[in-house]
Each structure stands twice: as C-alpha cells, then as structure tokens.
Nucleic acid binder design. Structure first.
Lengths: 191, 191
DNA sequence: AGCATAAATAATAA
DNA sequence: TTATTATTTATGCT
C-alpha cells in the first residue's frame, strides 16, 4: 500500500519533504539551508496576508517587475514548500526583495501599494446574485422541457430573465442545483 | 439612483460606515471608540492568520468555550466591521481574550493550539479528484439518455464508476460542466 | 513550469 | 444564523 502523499518518488524531493525528516541539521546535500527557507516561507505568507495581497497579485506583480514569469501556482508552491531546494533558493531572494519594497510602499499609504502591485486599487467583490422565485419558476419549466440546452440557448434565457450581467454560467449553475425533483431536495446527498 | 453599497438605510449604521466618515473623533454617539475597534479588527485578522486559523475555526472554538454561538459569518462581519458599534463593543473583549489564550497555547506547540481550538490536528486537504476519459465517456452516454437522474441514480452511477468516495456531488458537478455538446466547449462562455 | 479546475475559505443574501 | 455565492488556494496533469 502506497501512501499518497510525501512519497519520495524518483524525482527530486521538495523542501517540505526534506525538512520534515530531521536527519541533517536543516541543510541539504548542496549546503542549502532548508530550515531558513521554511522559516522565510512561513514569514512570507504572514507578511503577504498582512498587506492584504493574494498569491495571484504577487505573481502578477513579480512577472511585471522581475524577469521571468511567476504564476500563482509558483507562489503557492513556494509557501507550501512544494518545490525543490534549488528552485526555492533561487526564488527566495526575489520574493524577499519584492516584499520588502511592497511593505515600504504600503507604509506610505495603501494607495501606493496597490499602484506598486499594479492592479486596480481594490476592486470590490461582485455582489452575490440570486434568483427570484419567479425566475426559478421559469427556469424549472424551461429545463423540464429542454434539459440539454446549448450554450446559446442558455445565454438567451439568461438575457430574457434580466440576468444578463451574470450571463450563462449562473443559469448553468442553477441547472446543476435545481434540476432534481423536489422530493430529492434536502436529502442526505450534498448538492 | 441608489448606490448599492454603503447605503445608510433606516437601520443602525455599521462600524465600517461610521469610521469612514471622519466627523467625530472616532467616537460614536454612545461613546464607543470606533477607531480602536477598527484597529483591533485589523490586528485580529492578522493574528488569526498568523496562527493559521480560519474564521470557521474561530467561530466554532468560541461557540464551544464561550456562551452563545458564533458563526463564521459573525467573525467575518467583525473583521470587515460590517456590524453595529454596540455588537462590536460586545464582541471585542471576547475575541481579544480568546485570541490571547490561543496564542499562548500556540507558543507551547502547534499541537496544543489545535487541541485548544478543538478540531482534529490539521486534517489534510482532500486530494483533488478527476474523471478518467473512460468515466467521462460513460457519464456522457448515460446523461444523454437520462438527463434528469434522481439523487439515488446519481449515487449508483458514482459507485459503479468507483468514485464512491466522492459520491454523488462530484458526478452532479460533472453534469453541469460536461452536459453541453462538444461544439460548445471552449466557447467564450465560462463553464 | 503553468494551465485548468477541485477544494477550501471568505463574504453575502435571506 | 444559516445557506449559498464569490474568491482564493492547492494540485493533477502535461
């Protein structure tokens, strides 16, 4: 039986896998200080959150200012130490420098930080949408007749019901959530 | 035209609404120090995240140790200051006290913190599941014949395909995502 | 080496 | 508050 996580595999092990086994003094084969990286990663996350930044924002900002591209996945993997020591060692100073500068801008006002990061100054969360009972009625009736509408049809329905701003994906979600007979609602199944 | 957020309404205004208008010296009608509450709320969030706790965990832990029930929403609203000054004033000392104690336990080891919080000690994230091409084939064929399966039917299909651990909700999601003809895939619609 | 998307968390409607 | 939607994080894949 193979445990599905922390499997050594044939690949290069990640920092997280290496630091968890306290054989060596927090240092890997090539003399990289794994313990220091772990410490920084944890610290980095807290400082990032203190600035109110998402992994996506950091990645995009780094891509803009630094050389190569940094995806949200990359930031995530660094924070989780799901990355090889070599990669971590390379990424650490970049993150360190960038974050310090970001904090500097933040001290001069959050406006400056957002400008530094590049994105719009805190775009508000989209208001959650909901269906009126009338709309639900219409949708139920429609989907009972035509359970497999095309994307175009869905778009039209959405427009007709004045949910055009949310477009078809909302209606599509509705399908998934409300397509069962009412006797099935509130059952033990998670829908 | 009515702006959809920060509307005063006839209701009692929230702390967030009050502190944003710097008329008074950060104090409301009843002498509550709004500025102090805002400061604490911000601080609380950072400290919570430093402990690696979610709003849900805090809410549940408070419900267990303190008197009344505290939902995730309640914690969220406090952090966002989307709450009346009176409620905030009442909640603040409770949060303050609890968080301080949590930090104390954390210093003695994360294990102790998790015990204090009450939940299991760091339950791992469920591994993401995916459908094999074979399973997708089978599901497509099935749903073409029966587009409106009952919950029970869905459960059976899931079992048959050895997705029993994920049960029906996954299959249900699949329905929403894969029910369109392939010509509609990769269209501009978000599915 | 990052896209697509599942899972988890936060915010909002009711 | 509870139930649900929106956003963010994490991970399977190639």
């Amino acid at each position: 039986p193979i445990s599905s996580d922390s499997v050594p595999c044939g690949d290069t092990p990640t920092v997280g896998q290496l630091v968890s086994k306290p054989q060596q003094g927090g240092t890997d084969d090539e003399g990289i200080n794994l313990e220091e990286i772990r410490e920084f990663a944890k610290n980095f996350k807290i400082r990032r959150l203190s600035l109110g930044l998402t992994q996506t924002q950091v990645g995009q900002a780094l891509t803009a200012t630094e050389g190569p591209a940094y995806s949200q996945s990359a930031i995530c993997r660094f924070e989780k130490l799901d990355i090889t020591p070599k990669s971590a060692q390379k990424l650490k100073p970049v993150l360190e420098r960038w974050l310090a500068e970001a904090e500097l801008w933040n001290q001069k006002g959050q406006q400056n930080l957002m400008e530094f990061v590049g994105g719009e100054p805190s775009k508000k969360r989209k208001r959650r949408t909901s269906f009126t009972p009338q709309a639900i009625e219409v949708l139920n009736t429609y989907f009972e007749k035509n359970a497999l509408p095309t994307g175009q049809e869905i778009t039209e329905i959405a427009k007709e019901l004045n949910y055009d701003r949310e477009l078809a994906n909302l209606v599509s979600k509705f399908v998934a959530e409300n397509r069962l007979p009412s006797s099935q609602k509130n059952s033990s199944l998670e829908f």
